[in-house]
Each structure stands twice: as C-alpha cells, then as structure tokens.
Design a protein around this nucleic acid. Structure first.
Lengths: 192, 192, 192, 192
DNA sequence: AATGAATGAGTATTCATTCAT
DNA sequence: GATGAATGAATACTCATTCAT
C-alpha cells in the first residue's frame, strides 16, 4: 500500500492538473488523500515544498520517457525517438505534461528548489545534445543546436497546448498523425 | 468620459495583465475602478462574465495587430506580416498574449461566451487563410492549410511560452532575432 | 441601539480584558458581537487596527476621569484629585485600566498608531504638569517633575498590578484605604 | 550532562524569555531542546505544568538575588540591599522579571501549583520582614509592614513595568540613577 | 446606479495533544 | 524514554456574492 507521503503527492498532482495551480489547496489535497490538512505538514514543510516535489517527480517521470531515446543507433533516429517520447509522455501522462510544460509559471523564481531547476534543465539539455549530434554528423545543416532544440520544444508545447486547450479536435490516433506530419515538416527545413 | 462599465473593464484588464489570472479579484478591480465591489454586479453578472469580456477585448486587440497584415502585397508577404504581428503583440502586449494564448483554460467549455469563441476562431481562421493563399499561389508546396497554420501557431505559442516561463533568457532584440530565424527555418520546410 | 462597530469594540474590549491579549481572536470577538468574523473587516482593517482602536478608546475614557482633576483649586488639590481619578478609573473601569497600564506590550512599536501614541502621551504629561505646579508653588520640594510623575504612576501601576494579579486580597473599600495611605506615604517624602 | 527534563526546562525558559508568553509553543520548546514535541509529555503533563515549572525556577532565581540581602548589617542596609537586588534582577534577568512580576496572570488560580504559590509568597514575605525590622528597630516610623512592603513592590513593579513597555527611555545607568532617586524619595517619607 | 453591511466558504498555517509503536 | 503519524480546533485573513436600501 502507498504510504501517506505518496498519497499526498498523487492527490496534489491530480488536483493541480484538474483545477490548475490556482485550484490546488492544502485542504483539497488532504481531502483527496483521505487525511487531515494538518497531516500534510508532517510530510511537507509548506504548500510550496509540496508543489515543487510534484514538479520534481514530474520531471523524473518525463526523463524516464525521454532518456531511452539514446537507444537509437543514429543521431536522427535518436532525435526521432525523443520526439516520439514527447508524444507518448504528452498523451500518456497528459496531466504531468501540462503541469511541467504548459503551466505558465516561471520556473526560475528565487525560491525554486535547486533540484527542480536541475531536473528541468537536464531534459532541455538532452534535446540540445540530440540536435547537436544531428548537426555534427552532417544530417542537419549547420545551425545553432540550442535554437533548433528550442524550436522543436516550441512546436511540441504549442502543439499540445492547442490540444489541451481544446482549440482543435481529434482523437489520439489523429493526433499522432498530425504530430508526425508536423515533425516531418520541421525536419524538412532542417535537413542538410 | 468613460462610463463605469469601461472603467471596470480597464481595471480588470490592468489587474489581469499585472497580476495574472490568479491575482484578479473583484475587490481589487473595484478598488482600481474607484467603485464598490458590489457595483461591479450592476454591469457584469459574475466574475466569469467579466473575465470573458476581458478576453473578448483581448482578442480584439490582437485583431488590431493581426489584420493589418492584409496590407502585404503577396501571400508570402502577408504571412510574414502576420508573423511580425504575432511577435509585436506577444512582446508589446505580453500579458494579453499570455492571457489569450498561454493560459491553459479550455476556450470551448459550455459556459464560454459565443462572442468570445467567435473572436478566438476568427484569428485562427485568418492564419489558415494566409497559409492557404501561400499554397494556392504556389509559394508553398501543396499541404493541409489548417495543419500548417496550426504548426505556425504552435511555434509561436511554444516560443513565447518558453519566453514567459523564463525557460531561457535574452532581451527583446535577441528575442526578435531568434524568432525570425525560427520563422525562416519553418518556412524553409514549407516553401515549394 | 449600538451600531455594529461599537458592538465589535465592546466585544474586543471584553475579551482582551477577560482573556488577555493572547486570548483575543477575531473569531471570538465576532462571536461575542453576534456577527461573522468576516464582518469585522468591514469596520476594521485588521486585528491590529481593532486592537489599537480599543486602546485609543481606553485612553479617552481614562482622560474623562483624569482631566476633571483640573477643577481643584490648588496644585496639591489637583494632584489629589488626579490620584483619586486613577483609583476610580482603576476600580470602575478595571479592565480598561489593566489593558492600558498593566499589559506589558511596548506602546511604541513602529506600527503603533499616532493617535494612540498621542493619547498615551497626553495623560502622562498631564501628571507631569500636576507635579510641576506642586513644585513651582512651593508645595513640593524642588525636584524633577517628570521623575516624580513617573514615581506616582509607578506606584499606581504597581499597586493595581498586585491587586489584579490577586497577589493580595481585600474589597474595594479596603483597597481605597490602602491606596490613600500609600498616597500619603509617598506625599510625605515629597512635600517641602 | 543535562537530562532531558532540564533541557526542556531551559529551552522553555529561553523561549519564554525570548518571545514572551505568547511566543512559547511546545513545538518550539521541543525543537530548541533537540527532541520531539511528543517527548515533552514524558516529562510534563501539559504546557501549563511546564509553564509553572518555569515560573518556579524563576522565583528561585529571584531568591538567589534577593536573599543575600541578609548579609547587610542593619535593617536599613538589608532593605537597601534588597532594593538593589530587585534592580539587578530586573535588569540582568529582565525577561524573568517580566515573566514573574509583570505578566498579569493571577497567581492564585485553582490550578496553580502549590509550590509555585509558596515560592511567590516567600519572596513577598521576605520583603515584609525587611520592612518590619526597619520599623521595629526604629529606623522607620511606626506603620503597617505589609502595606509598606506592598508599596515598595508596587514602585518596583510600576517602575520596571514602565521601563519594559518602553513608556520612557534611557540606558541602564540612567535607569539606575532614576531608580535610586525613586527609592530615596520613598524612603524619605518612611524614615522616622 | 451604487453603497454599506454582511455572509459562508475557503486560504495557509500553527497549536496542544493523543496514540500506537 | 522517545518517535512518527495524525487529529481537531484554532489562527488571521480573502473571496465572490447577496441583500436591503
């Protein structure tokens, strides 16, 4: 059985994703976790701490999707697998994706935990690395790897952002096709 | 002189743009508008209604940036001007941009005002139209105009989303250069 | 009938005096005043504001006991009447006395209202003035008026302090006799 | 090495003296003592019990200042030494003084520990005794020793009360001069 | 068209305390 | 002799909203 700390984390995550940052309250979390609001404070110093732990867990979950992309045999294949990982994470862990990438709160406020920053940074750098090796191997024309990585991330975030805010429709299979086509279109502009 | 309704709207807008969705409260709006919280209810049924009116105004402001792109003489130039308009709106009216495009509240919930929906839709369709004429004129290779428009929007939202959440740095001039290069990279994949 | 603001003030005063500074809570005040905690905030900005208003009212009530001492025809008589006023205020408005003079919270914290400071200061200066005229008229031997006033205040506060904390017993009549004797003993050391 | 009970008492005392009655909480005490809040209950039944033990210790500390006054060779000298002891205790152990003499919580409530009562009473009686011998020896004019003792205590409490609540200023040396003069003035009225 | 008064639900957090271990 | 987990009640204060005027 889950220990209380995990129950709290899960409840917090659910509520964040269900009702947004603003809808998350200690009371609601406690109620969803089946405990008293007070009891949360045994496990987390403050709401802020809890919030950050949720984000940290989220980035780690994301990492577990993203990093296996290294199994690809060529730079292009690894980039492709990373793109796939994005899609799978965004659809399978939609709420986490939303929380991590689509919630527009600055992730570098003074009080943001160092661990959190590190986790966030490292998945970003993973993408830069994937792009860099595509360039270095000659698959991509010469360009700034960070900017390309940013472009790819932008597309993903923008794409899923539109999806999440229901600005257009379609089921997951449809989605995947659109996603793949979008990826191909971007790629076309990048290939050497 | 402004009538009370306008004063309320302006105050609400200021606060939204200043303190975000979360910081907006009827009290603060009333106080900024120089009236009683109660008085707002003469003019708006609820906070929700007021919120939506702010969004409608926001889309109209966006329109005033976007639609002049029609002055361009060729489809490609018009698309280019539209891209510029996005950038200017996102930087000059950053909070509005955020409110309209980056706040992940579904814009198609049952209780969303029809006018709001129409405004949101029309700027989306404007972009589709710009893409369509690029394709029809042979500037772009044959493709689905809606998907391309979506791709462009994705890039914009993703790009500014990263900017807003401070996931990377740089001043406005830097930003513009990055934005232009991103636009060129995408374009490269789309041109016939 | 009392308006709500007065009801709140009275309730606050009662509770302060009944349960001490530490026992005073907005909830309790509201409950005693027969209203909702929230409703207090219509009339007072914060607990602090309410607290200070209670003190200000207290000092004013004290003034209404003290200042009529000016009716005395000689300096000594006026001093005597002031001493009497202290006694009457301390016994008739025991709780106010306690709150104003025996609650050991610094009355000069940064956030203390100017009005409050002024009220507190003016009753202190009234006593200095009474002493000064006793000295100037030759009734008292030459000495520092402020220090003498302080001595008199000290005795009063100390005296009623012991009374309040039940460190000795006796009814009000008994009390008065002791008070008078204490006053005479002090006087003996001060007279020219 | 200190046993836990002593560590708790010292921590409690520190906090009382540092943050006042209001700031003392079991959590803070436990944290300062390096144990769990729960552990306190092994040693003290309740916060109240702990509080009273702190007071008992305080009265004992006070005694250690006061009782050496017996070393004086004449009644007047012993009284004088007692007055000095008051001053030193009030300034050197200001927070204790405050806690013992200026906190207006009745010291004779039903639930007050007998030991505490006894300790409090005995220092009071010490003063009565000092006064009595001044009268018996003819140094003071004939009067009620208890009332005189009370007068002296009143002056002390009143004096330091004004000092603590910052109702007037001055450093410790200044203070001492004022205190001495006040003592002399009182004495003048009491001497035979 | 607007106000003053009030409400009830909710906010994060702290408190003394209990219980099982 | 001490801990980890939890509780229920309390803290000051904010919110959107309603109602009588």
């Amino acid at each position: 059985m889950l220990d209380t700390k995990d129950k709290i984390l899960m409840a917090a995550c659910d509520i964040y994703l269900d009702q947004g940052t603003k809808g998350m309250s200690m009371r609601k979390v406690a109620s969803k976790a089946g405990i008293t609001p007070t009891a949360i404070y045994r496990h987390f110093d403050s709401k802020e701490t809890l919030h950050q732990q949720v984000l940290i867990d989220g980035f780690r979950a994301f990492g577990s999707y993203l990093y296996p992309a290294l199994k690809g045999e060529t730079p292009l294949e690894r980039l492709h697998l990373a793109a796939e990982a994005f899609f799978r994470f965004a659809t399978e862990q939609a709420r986490y994706y939303e929380l991590l990438f689509l919630t527009m709160e600055a992730t570098d406020e003074i009080n943001v935990d160092k661990i959190l920053k590190r986790e966030a940074r490292s998945s970003y750098e993973f993408m830069i690395e994937r792009v860099r090796e595509c360039i270095d191997s000659g698959a991509f024309s010469d360009d700034d790897p960070e900017e390309i990585a940013m472009l790819l991330l932008s597309v993903c975030n923008g794409f899923f952002g539109l999806y999440v805010s229901k600005k257009f429709e379609g089921d997951s299979a449809d989605m995947k096709k659109k996603y793949d086509r979008a990826y191909q279109r971007i790629l076309k502009g990048l290939l050497a």
